[in-house]
C-alpha cells in the first residue's frame, strides 16, 4: 500500500466488488489515456506525498484533493501547491471520466468517483488527512 497509484489495479478489483451488478463485467483499465493519467499522477505523487504527510493537503470525500492547512507551508510554496492540487484534480477528473468511457458506461462516472474517493482514503497512510462524509477533516 506504499504508493496508492500503483494499486490502481487493486482498486479496480475493489471497484468490481463495489458494483455487485457489474462484478462480472470485465472492467477496462488498460487504455493508453488511463496509462497516461496514471503516469502523470504517479510522477506528481512524489511531490504531493510530503504535503499529505505534513497535513497541508488532504483527500476529499469526492475523490479529489484539497488544501487543508496552508499554514504548514512557507508562503512562497502555497501558490505552487495550489497549482499542484489543481493539476492533480484535473487528472483525477479525467481518470474517472475515462474509466467510465473506456467501459462504455459514461453514466458510471459519479459512482467511480465516489468509490475512488473512498478507496484513496482507505489506502492513505497513517497521518494523512481526509474528509469525512460530513465534510469535516480527520486524520488516519
Amino acid at each position: 500500500m506504499r504508493n496508492p497509484i500503483s494499486h490502481l489495479i487493486l482498486l479496480m478489483a475493489l471497484l468490481s466488488a463495489s458494483f455487485p451488478s457489474f462484478a462480472a463485467a470485465d472492467i477496462e483499465i488498460n487504455t493508453p489515456a488511463i496509462a497516461r493519467l496514471k503516469q502523470s499522477m504517479q510522477q506528481r505523487h512524489g511531490q504531493l506525498e510530503a504535503y499529505y504527510t505534513r497535513g497541508a493537503v488532504g483527500l476529499t470525500r469526492d475523490g479529489l484533493i484539497a488544501m487543508r492547512d496552508a499554514n504548514v507551508l512557507p508562503l512562497a510554496a502555497r501558490q505552487s501547491v495550489n497549482a499542484l492540487i489543481a493539476s492533480e484534480n484535473e487528472d483525477r477528473n479525467a481518470l474517472y471520466r475515462e474509466i467510465a468511457r473506456a467501459n462504455g458506461r459514461p453514466e458510471w462516472e459519479q459512482d467511480i468517483r465516489s468509490t475512488f474517493g473512498q478507496r484513496w482514503i482507505d489506502l492513505a497512510r497513517p497521518g494523512w488527512w481526509y474528509q469525512a462524509p460530513n465534510g469535516s477533516w480527520g486524520r488516519k
Binding site: 493508453p32 489515456a33 493519467l37 479525467a94
Partner: peptide, 10 residues
Amino acid sequence: VLDLMGRAPS
C-alpha cells in the same frame, strides 16, 4: 475528440 484541452486527449 475527447478531453480536447486535457492531458489525455483522444
